[in-house]
């Protein structure tokens, strides 16, 4: 195809109107450089097109020019195109930053949530362990009590209340072979906080201390050992009493029959 055929092939119009393919465009641009008459023909079509467009102009709405001005004053200028690119890129980084802050906040939220949940689980776990320990020790005491009660060597002395107003009752489990003394409180009235009950063994008319105790113990209490006892007595004494019994405050008594 010679240049004249090329000129009249429709490529000029196709190129100018933006309908040519990328390959056609490249070829055309190269041809324009090497063939000035082609560039000239292109230019005359462009002029015709421009004239045609100017003749068929449609006035844009009033106020649009101001909108354009305000839009470009916000963005800027041709010479700052690179700045614009970077600012656009930094806007991109802005999104990344925003996203990472968002992710961080999300992660922090989950961390706090899981920390709290873990804390709650730990607490409830500790509570369970405490309860298990309490239950275990209670079970041990009950087992021990059961063992004592079913031991054939043990003598049971039922303590009978001596005060009508406050009928205290308890049982002493006394193993005369091993000298062990256990006390099971059945019904002893509560005492002021400075007072305690005290168990005594009466041997040949003399009281021997077997230990102080508080009445609220719900299971068996291990008291001091005694090899002998004619009877047992419970008195109310000052908390931590080291002296003899206050027999006026004798609460319960029981005879040990050997």
């Amino acid at each position: 195809m010679n240049i004249h055929e090329y000129i009249s092939s429709g490529i000029i119009e196709s190129y100018v109107l933006g309908l040519a393919s990328e390959e056609e465009r490249r070829e055309f641009e190269e041809m324009c450089v090497s063939h000035p008459e082609l560039a000239e023909a292109r230019n005359s079509f462009e002029l015709a097109l421009e004239e045609q467009a100017l003749k068929n102009a449609v006035p844009p709405p009033a106020g649009l020019k101001e909108k354009v001005w305000s839009a470009i004053s916000h963005t800027t200028s041709p010479s700052k195109v690179i700045n614009m690119e970077t600012s656009r890129r930094s806007a991109g980084w802005g999104w990344v930053a925003a996203a990472s802050i968002f992710l961080f906040l999300g992660a922090a939220y989950f961390a706090v949530t899981f920390y709290n949940r873990n804390k709650r689980l730990e607490t409830s776990n500790e509570n369970l362990v405490t309860r298990i320990n309490q239950t275990d020790s209670l079970l041990n005491k009950i087992t021990e009590e059961q063992k004592i009660m079913s031991d054939p060597n043990i003598m049971v002395v039922n303590m009978v209340g001596t005060q009508k107003a406050t009928p205290g009752s308890a049982s002493v489990y006394w193993d005369s072979t091993s000298s062990n003394v256990y006390l099971v409180v059945k019904n002893m009235p509560k005492l002021p906080s400075d007072k305690q009950y005290q168990l005594w063994a009466l041997i040949e008319g003399k009281p021997h201390d077997l230990g102080l105790f508080d009445p609220h113990a719900e299971v068996i209490l291990k008291m001091k050992n005694t090899q002998k006892a004619d009877a047992f007595a419970i008195t109310i004494e000052n908390r931590g009493n080291t002296g003899g019994p206050n027999l006026e405050q004798l609460q319960s008594m029981g005879k040990a029959k050997l």
Binding site: V16, E46, L49, E50, A53, I72, T75, P78, V81, M84
Partner: peptide
């Protein structure tokens, strides 16, 4: 306004 520096006058008219 933004892209005026990508205009290449060897490739055609401004319009």
């Amino acid at each position: 306004w933004r892209k005026i520096n990508s205009y290449d006058e060897t490739k055609g008219r401004l319009f």
